[in-house]
Amino acid sequence: MDIILPVEDGRRASYRLIGRPVEAVAGARFPRIAYAAAHVVADPLAMSDPWSKPVVDWDRTMAFRHHLWRLGFRIAEAMDTSQRGMGFDWSSARELIRRSIVEARTVEGADLASGAGTDHLEVRAGLTLDDIIAAYEEQFGFIEGEGGKAIMMASRALAATARSADDYAKVYDRVLSQASGKVILHWLGDMFDPALKGYWGADNFENALDTVVAIIERHAHKVEGIKISLLDADKEVALRNRLPDGVVMFTGDDFNYPELIAGDGHRHSHALLGIFDAIAPVANSALARLAAGDRAGYDALMAPTVPLSRKIFEAPTEYYKAGIVFMAWLNGHQDHFTMVGGMQSARGICHYAEVFRLADQAGLLADPDLAVSRMKSLCAVAGI
């Protein structure tokens, strides 16, 4: 099957599909905790202004979560993959969390953790640490009040207000000491959100590492684990090696996840990944191979997903959500390629064409005929 696609130099070239869809393993048991950070499906027919308050297709959004649960994944809800802070506000996230917790209760073995942040707080002059603590408390209170588990997201307000590592310690110490259950921390790098530059009160990794390790050590009984999203395997391993017993590492490295999940024979990372939204069937099959002791089979399945993930998460990395939703549309999980805030426009047609090629090569086009048809329609809109 052939399709004409654009290439970066402005030419058009014929591409022949070569991949076969990888079959997921029904009932697979994973050797690692595996959270997929899930996207939301917009409702384009209900939008009068795509840049105004988001309008969500709740049926399709929940159906995608059932897709991930069927494949054995836990879900990280209302995270940056759902466009938190990029068109998806706290009031919408609150409804998403509420619905997802209710839906999870209908699925045997379903697991869910939800992002608690400070994104309903206006970043302004005069903001205090107590204001930030109160904002975290409000979101934690809602999630825990609904019976959910919280992921403590990085705070733009804290990054703008804090003047030292001690300020971060004050906020995290207060919030963690009050949490009713175990919490997952999230260290999100500024490549994902430029407003988080200098997080933990340091411009260098070593000082930031010391701060976050000290916070975790003081609250080890309250911290389930930490997700680190710095796109640097060495930095993740450095943190992983310093975690107290009983606190786990969740890789958020969408560039180097296969090796970090597999581990070095002594330590390994669990996973909380946005890319799992897009590669769930292959990741399911690969993790099943790893559980069976077949490292070579795991590597063979995971390796082709890495170029795809690196393309989706290329700079400017914060727009990776467009590639995630594009994959869901290609694979029939939604009938349109429209995103909250019109974010599908954040990437160009050459980017999407390369994602299409790499998805094919990774065995991630579930229905090649459908995917080709949809890719052709997108190219036609772009004048190709």
Score class of each variant (00 low, 15 high):
186 H>Q: 15
121 L>C: 06
101 I>H: 06
128 T>N: 04
181 G>P: 05
136 Y>M: 04
135 A>M: 05
86 M>C: 11
192 F>L: 15
188 L>W: 00
141 G>K: 01
146 E>N: 09
133 I>K: 10
158 L>W: 02
199 Y>E: 15
152 M>H: 04
169 A>Q: 14
185 L>Q: 08
158 L>Y: 13
93 A>F: 13
132 I>L: 08
112 L>Y: 02
158 L>V: 11
157 A>I: 00
137 E>Q: 02
169 A>T: 08
142 F>R: 03
94 R>W: 05
79 M>A: 09
149 K>T: 08
147 G>P: 07
157 A>L: 13
83 Q>L: 12
136 Y>H: 04
79 M>F: 07
181 G>S: 12
97 I>H: 02
140 F>I: 00
96 L>F: 15
166 D>T: 05
135 A>W: 05
114 S>Q: 01
196 L>S: 11
143 I>G: 11
159 A>F: 15
124 R>P: 13
122 E>Y: 03
181 G>I: 00
166 D>E: 14
181 G>W: 02
91 S>I: 02
130 D>V: 03
85 G>W: 05
123 V>I: 13
123 V>P: 13
128 T>Y: 14
110 A>Q: 08
108 E>N: 08
113 A>G: 03
130 D>N: 07
144 E>G: 04
99 R>V: 13
120 H>V: 00
83 Q>R: 10
174 R>N: 12
125 A>K: 03
166 D>M: 11
93 A>D: 10
154 A>L: 12
145 G>I: 00
150 A>S: 10
95 E>M: 09
116 A>Y: 03
104 A>C: 14
182 K>Y: 06
131 D>K: 07
116 A>N: 11
176 L>T: 01
136 Y>I: 00
106 T>Q: 07
143 I>C: 08
149 K>G: 05
189 G>V: 00
86 M>W: 09
107 V>S: 10
172 Y>L: 06
114 S>M: 03
129 L>G: 09
182 K>A: 04
131 D>I: 02
136 Y>G: 04
191 M>H: 15
185 L>I: 00
125 A>E: 05
199 Y>P: 04
149 K>R: 07
188 L>S: 07
170 K>R: 14
106 T>R: 06
84 R>H: 03
101 I>R: 06
192 F>G: 14
90 W>I: 00
122 E>W: 05
138 E>Y: 01
170 K>H: 12
87 G>A: 03
127 L>K: 07
183 V>L: 12
79 M>T: 01
100 S>C: 15
165 A>S: 10
156 R>D: 04
197 K>P: 05
145 G>E: 03
110 A>Y: 05
102 V>M: 04
195 A>C: 14
148 G>R: 00
195 A>Q: 12
162 A>Y: 01
171 V>L: 11
162 A>W: 02
98 R>T: 09
109 G>R: 01
175 V>R: 15
113 A>R: 07
159 A>M: 14
131 D>G: 07
132 I>T: 06
164 S>P: 12
182 K>H: 03
137 E>G: 07
147 G>D: 06
143 I>A: 11
151 I>N: 12
164 S>I: 01
149 K>Q: 08
141 G>Q: 14
158 L>S: 07
194 P>M: 10
110 A>S: 09
97 I>E: 06
83 Q>F: 07
101 I>L: 14
